[in-house]
């Protein structure tokens, strides 16, 4: 498809609202995003990393916030995850980034969630991550996963 560079770099945006404590519906947005990434045919390593990033971000909203949105911005070169919530915010981001540190209530830990790996996992599986947070208001997490520029049919042209 010949065209301007812009038309060769389309972006697909998917947005889902996520309710706090709704464990029944949780996982569905991440699953839908993962399926779309597979349909686009991005590298499996990207799909795998993105699955972890979106899922952890979604669960963070479910576990900690009142409500929020999970958004995916997908382009051939990168996948951007944006998670915004209305919730308690994070008083100490450095502490929250530490593996195993968790403020999840006991009943949630009982369910096997809230192991204090959410934010560390997002960081580990993305190429860059930013957190903006305000105590008592909410949190916005943006993570970027770059698609490796490997050879092969998927990255033809350019």
């Amino acid at each position: 498809m010949p065209g301007t560079p812009e038309s060769e770099n389309p972006v697909i945006t998917m947005s889902f609202s996520v309710e706090g404590r709704d464990f029944k519906a949780s996982g569905e947005p991440s699953r839908r995003i993962k399926r779309t990434l597979e349909q686009i045919g991005l590298d499996w390593s990207v799909v795998r990393r993105a699955s972890v990033v979106f899922y952890e971000a979604e669960m963070n909203i479910v576990i900690h916030a009142r409500r929020g949105t999970l958004r995916a911005e997908i382009s051939p070169g990168r996948v951007v995850m944006v998670a915004e919530d209305e919730g308690p915010g994070i008083p100490d981001v450095a502490l929250a980034m530490r593996e195993g540190f968790s403020t999840a209530p006991a009943e949630i830990r009982e369910m096997g969630f809230g192991a204090g790996m959410g934010l560390p996992n997002i960081k580990k599986h993305s190429d860059s991550m930013e957190i903006e947070t305000e105590v008592g208001k909410g949190t916005r997490v943006v993570a970027v996963i770059n698609v490796p520029r490997a050879g092969g049919a998927k990255t033809r042209g350019g």
């Binding site: 597979e38 349909q39 045919g41 499996w44 382009s75 051939p76």
Partner: peptide, 22 residues
């Protein structure tokens, strides 16, 4: 080996258009 079947098109840009249409 993998047997990926989900991909809508070999070309990522075309696959993205197909995702939107989908």
């Amino acid at each position: 080996p993998p047997r990926p079947v989900m991909q809508l098109d070999d070309d990522v840009a075309v696959a993205m258009l197909k995702v939107e249409l989908l």
